[in-house]
Amino acid sequence: MTVMQHIWIVLGVLFVLLNIAAGLIWVERRLLAMWQDRLGPNRAGPLGILIVLADTLKLFFKEDWIPPFADKWLFILAPAIVVGSVLMSFVIIPFAPQIVVADLNIGLLFFLAMSSLGVYSIVLGGWASNNKYSLLGALRGASQMIAYEVFMGLSLMGIVMLTGSFNLGAIVAAQQHTWFVFTQPLGFIIFFIAGIAETHRLPFDIPEAESELIAGYHAEYSGMKFGMFFIGEYLGITLISAMTATLFFGGWLGPGFLPPWAWFFLKTFFFIGIFILLRASLPRPRYDQLMGYGWKILLPLVLVNLLVTGAIALCLRG
């Protein structure tokens, strides 16, 4: 691969991802409305898709206010971290054979590391806002994401055992015959639950929890800084969906009548739909329920899954 090709891939991935993240504003509002027997935004442009443009313009023209009591530099830094760390995670995802920004041999570890960095944006944003609700949101966010980070990592170790590699290209190639969702169903469920908690989406939107914490860690943010948190959230959904598709549903593998990238996007959009469906259907658990559920049920389950997978892998090999 030449340098030029590589630059094209980087730019293309960035372009597609940012557009998807923005377009998800429309997708989510439309789907959510449909599931609530409404129509949703359908006026601006064909099917209302230009609502994305209107929303973005509105965010750009809002006053970009930094509260006088806030810690100015951290306040500015926090929204940048969330977008940066999520975009960094996309580096290792193989969108199609040969279309991957960096084919790291520790790809999965890189993904886990980058998604952990996302915690900083919440903690710093909540801390820098100097507001009690923001701080509460930040505290909740930090403990939730650290707790669920543990199972997220552990739930993927089964796949690593079966593949024998941290490289995502190798993991996709290992699913040529069977998707890992069939051999690692428990791992899939736990990874997906942890992924929802990791992107702090509903029903696990405990760091923001409008009804308890106003807007949690981004209560003081306005204008495009808030927009960055927003984009970061949608990028996070896309990331978890893309990772689920890659790790458990064979990534770009699929019957030959569609090109590999189309299979990848189809699978990714299916999981994005599930994310939105979850938001439409399930209520938010209490904070202590979330933590108890994580540490008391999911952690033992994921350890059992790891143990059984390890035993079977050992038997098959021996």
Partner: peptide, 8 residues
């Protein structure tokens, strides 16, 4: 629940 909401 999710299925019923989906049917909407």
């Amino acid at each position: 629940t999710m299925w019923l909401v989906f049917l909407h």
